[in-house]
């Protein structure tokens, strides 16, 4: 998905001189064309994430629309105070572009697993959170990000995924039954949809915008089902599961909200994201198992 977003962003830089691309020395064979084609609106700030965010804020003072790119574990946690004070507090339209969400960088180990950044950023006032779940969503997201007047974070999943029904900020794929709704985003979207393909009674909700949630669509979907299973490669309480529980309570929806998430996170290392998806039951088999569990 990263390549799709970068292509769209590269095209946008030609059309809109406000767009400024920054990297903290990440993106080999990806960011070079930005530097070559738009040298006055490209910066590699070096391995200095606090500076990455502070400079992005300063560029907003000049009216630019900065896109700050690096892997999410570096992008969010190291410069958290800069994101809070220099970006969110000022309401600056900085877009944080992060890769390595969830277990996308699986073999690199726990420091490079990112299962808590949505919660960390979600704790701040004023930052919206996105995670595109299909290539067409990723492509059209860039234009909306540029036009925004607020800060945003985008978790860019590693794998591309195409599905004709996945469009807009929230996609609801109703099943034939009213028992189970499966909710996923990003890397877990393909497994959610795969479950529906073999069990058409199941409904699926795929969120591209994680904060704020599309309350009308999400609450409507919850209200139509007995149980909802949130499948995410992120800690449950601070992830979409937590947001959904709150929504269900506020709207007084009678729906059991359940979670499949890496809450019992361990230091055991896997060679690919599939190892972790299987371990934490974030795959098709895990979802099907939970549907059947009382």
């Amino acid at each position: 998905m990263r390549g799709i977003i970068m292509d769209a962003l590269f095209a946008a830089m030609k059309a809109d001189e406000r767009v400024f691309f920054l990297t903290a020395d990440m993106g080999i064979n990806l960011v070079e064309r930005f530097a070559e084609s738009y040298p006055s609106r490209f910066l590699n700030v070096g391995i200095a994430e606090q500076n990455l965010i502070g400079i992005s804020a300063g560029l907003c003072n000049l009216g630019y629309r900065p896109f700050a790119y690096t892997i999410s574990n570096f992008l969010v946690h190291r410069p958290y105070e800069q994101i809070r004070n220099d970006v969110a507090l000022h309401g600056y339209p900085v877009t944080l572009l992060g890769t390595s969400g969830g277990f996308d960088n699986a073999p690199l180990g726990p420091t490079h697993h990112v299962v808590d950044e949505l919660g960390a950023l979600g704790a701040l006032a004023g930052i919206d959170l996105y995670c595109p779940s299909s290539t067409n969503c990723a492509r059209e997201l860039v234009g909306r990000l540029i036009e925004r007047e607020r800060p945003a974070y985008v978790r860019m999943p590693k794998d591309n995924f195409d599905h004709p029904a996945l469009e807009g900020e929230t996609a609801y794929l109703p099943g034939s039954g009213r028992q189970t709704l499966i909710i996923g985003y990003g890397a877990t979207a393909p497994a959610c949809i795969a479950v529906q393909e073999t069990n058409p009674a199941v409904s699926v909700l795929i969120c591209q915008r994680l904060r704020p949630l599309d309350e009308e669509v999400v609450a409507g979907a919850l209200a139509r089902h007995d149980q909802a299973i949130v499948v995410e490669d992120h800690l449950a309480a601070s992830g979409v599961y937590g947001a959904l529980c709150r929504l269900a309570m506020e709207y007084q929806i009678r729906c059991r909200v359940r979670s499949l998430a890496p809450d019992n996170y361990s230091l055991q290392v896997g060679a690919s994201p599939r190892f972790y998806q299987a371990r934490y039951r974030l795959d098709k088999g895990g979802i099907e198992e939970m549907i059947c569990q009382p």
Partner: peptide, 16 residues
């Protein structure tokens, strides 16, 4: 420690 990075952003933006 926040002001100087932001000032750098302003300075590079002016130059750009």
């Amino acid at each position: 420690g926040h002001g100087l990075p932001v000032a750098c952003g302003c300075a590079i933006g002016l130059r750009s």
